[in-house]
Nucleic acid binder design. Structure first.
Length: 552
RNA sequence: GUGCUCGUAGUCGAGUGGAUAAGACGUUAGCCUCCGGAGCUAAAAAUCGCGGGUUCGACUCCCGCCGAGCACACCA
């Protein structure tokens, strides 16, 4: 809604006028003019607490400031401006303003929801980044849903965003994968050898091995152990990556960049350690190289190169984040499982020591997901014997419900995922409720078409003045602001809640306001509002990666 | 033990220092000759974990306590 910017501009010029007159004197930077939709309709269409916020700076009472501003506002948008409470300014639009705004949205068509470009900097978001040693589980699913939704939302809000998956394809876990597949490979060929103690037990490893045998048969049996391990390890890695990309594809998640940890070994890691050494961030003790991360807020110093000469995972991660900073992003966002929170201090300390602005690195934590079926916690996959794979969840409740349920709660609260509710086709299930509202709108358009009623380029929108109509119009107006907030707060749950509220507001409109069978001008005006509502639901659901079916 | 995150009606939960603390489930009372009832309307229900502090104003910020989850490797 453009009205918000217009009001803010009107207030700012009034403040400037007041300062030129000497009515208000400032000594510091003024606060931003924050406009909000008031909690009650009696408080106007928009309100600001600017007078209260700036009271200290002007050394004047909030109500006095509000009076001075009000006297100097020259905009023709308002029927009246009230000063209320401790110094709120409440703005009431002239009668036709909401219809002018609605017309702008109607004319924008499917572009409504695309906010203007913010700037030229690119923000990088790295998420999921699960090891390619097993199936994605539901915890990864939450990260995948949140990350992709945040990318979509930030793009809609006008940011340049690049998404990235960091593949941990070096290190112990890859050796474990090779050992596990090697053992299965030999076992499937009839050899009675023990499975590695800390190997990957999951059924998916057996599947991977079977796929390898289907393609390559027994040709690796004769190889010496170390060579067979190497070959099978690479084949297993490739197989796991395909599996992982399949799941993500099915879940509606796309990455711009796939970054391999291997490309950091050993040159980029050594280079990063060299720079840290030069800057005095590294010391040697007990034969290992330590990062002096306690200098910058970590609890203890951390090993980056072990006594045996191998770099630690942290060393690779430092080189990786150095690389990300060097690529020139304006901001780096990482989505991590909450179990990694202890890791932030050491990475940020390393970035500070390398001379980067660690505040540009933002970590969003995803709290744990618990699945519930019939009120009981579901901990293990029967088939896998491990955490529940994302693909089993998609099989059971579908992609739309899985994504919506992951996104409807704030990322930093633990999520209890009710499988029965996600599957239920009733109004209790929010995703069905929203999709149902959309399908119903589509149905009305189909019937309107049969009745010979079509959209008008210049509908008489001001005919819509009942409470249900005005409520729906105002709900639509909130959308750009919700996108903006969801983007700056990395909060996809705002969009999930908004689109639910929109569907609910539409349902009330639907009950009170018929389209078919009313006078033609009114029918066309309502049809226009319905079109805007339909676009908004579609747009909001697309940000969440949830489909908007035309029939259900 | 230390650190991080979280404590909001019976339950789940929204709430970037502002006006009477959203919404949903459940409960209670209503609404189907009606564009998809997979729906709608109303009512009851909260000392915002406890105690201090900062502020004109605190669910929101700070300190202490209590409770829950997670993490505390020369693993990744």
């Amino acid at each position: 809604m453009q009205a918000k910017e217009k009001i803010a501009a009107a207030i700012k010029s009034a403040v400037e006028a007041a300062m030129q007159d000497g009515a208000l004197k400032f000594s510091e930077t003024l606060p931003e003019v924050a406009l909000e939709v008031p909690p009650k309709k009696e408080f106007g269409d928009f309100a600001t607490n600017f007078a209260m916020q700036s009271a200290k700076i002007f050394r004047t009472s909030p109500r006095k400031i509000a009076e001075e501003i009000k006297a100097r506002i020259t905009s023709d948008l308002f029927e009246r401006i009230d000063i209320a409470g401790a110094g709120f300014m409440n703005f009431y639009f002239k009668g036709d303003v909401i219809y002018r705004e609605l017309k702008e949205i109607y004319d924008a068509g499917k572009n409504f929801g695309h906010l203007p470009c913010k700037n030229n900097v690119t923000i990088q978001i790295e998420y999921v980044s699960a090891n390619p040693t097993g199936l994605l589980h539901v915890g990864h699913g939450r990260g995948a849903a949140a990350g992709s939704a945040i990318v979509n939302i930030m793009r809609a809000a006008g940011y340049n965003v690049e998404s990235e998956y960091y593949i941990n394809d070096a290190g112990n876990q890859m050796d474990k994968l090779a050992l596990s597949v090697n053992a299965r490979y030999l076992q499937l060929h009839g050899q009675d050898i023990p499975f590695p103690e800390d190997g990957y037990q999951g059924a998916d490893i057996l599947d991977t091995t079977k796929r390898i045998i289907a393609r390559h048969g027994d040709r690796y049996l004769a190889l010496p152990d170390d060579e067979r391990l190497k070959v099978l390890g690479e084949l297993a890695y490739a197989d796991k990556m395909l599996e992982l990309k399949d799941d993500l594809e099915r879940f509606g998640v796309h990455f711009d960049v796939w970054f391999s940890e291997r490309t950091l070994h050993p040159d980029k890691i050594n280079a990063a350690i060299e720079v840290l050494k030069e800057r005095g961030g590294i010391y040697e003790q007990d034969g290992a190289l330590w990062l002096a991360s306690t200098k910058y807020g970590d609890d203890k110093d951390r090993v980056v190169v072990r006594a045996n000469g191998e770099a630690t995972y942290l060393a690779a991660d430092i080189a990786y984040h150095k690389n990300k900073f060097d690529r020139g992003f304006g901001e780096l966002i990482n989505l991590w499982g909450a179990d990694h929170h202890g890791y932030v201090a050491r990475v940020k300390a390393a970035m500070t020591m390398l001379g980067y602005d660690a505040d540009k690195l933002k970590i969003i934590f995803l709290q744990m997901v618990s699945l519930f079926r019939s009120g009981e916690a579901v901990k293990m996959s029967k088939r896998m014997g491990t955490a529940i794979p994302l693909r089993e969840l998609m099989d059971e409740v579908g992609t739309d419900a899985a994504r919506y349920f992951f996104l409807m709660r704030s990322t930093d609260s633990q999520l209890d995922f009710d499988l029965d509710l996600a599957k239920s086709q009733s109004a209790d299930n929010p995703v069905y409720y929203i999709q149902y509202a959309h399908a119903r709108i589509c149905s009305i358009f189909r019937q309107a078409k049969e009745a010979g009623l079509s959209l008008d380029a210049e509908p008489r929108l001001s005919l819509m003045n009942s409470a249900a109509e005005v409520d729906l119009i105002n709900k639509i107006f909130e959308y750009p602001d919700e996108i903006e907030k969801a983007a700056t707060e990395y909060a996809p749950q705002r969009i999930a809640r908004y689109v639910y509220d929109l569907a609910s507001t539409f349902s009330a409109f639907y009950r009170d306001c018929r389209i078919l069978g009313v006078e033609e001008d009114l029918a066309k005006a309502r049809l226009a509002l319905l079109k805007v509502t339909q676009h908004t639901i579609q747009h909001a659901l697309s940000l969440l990666g949830v489909s908007a079916p035309e029939r259900m």
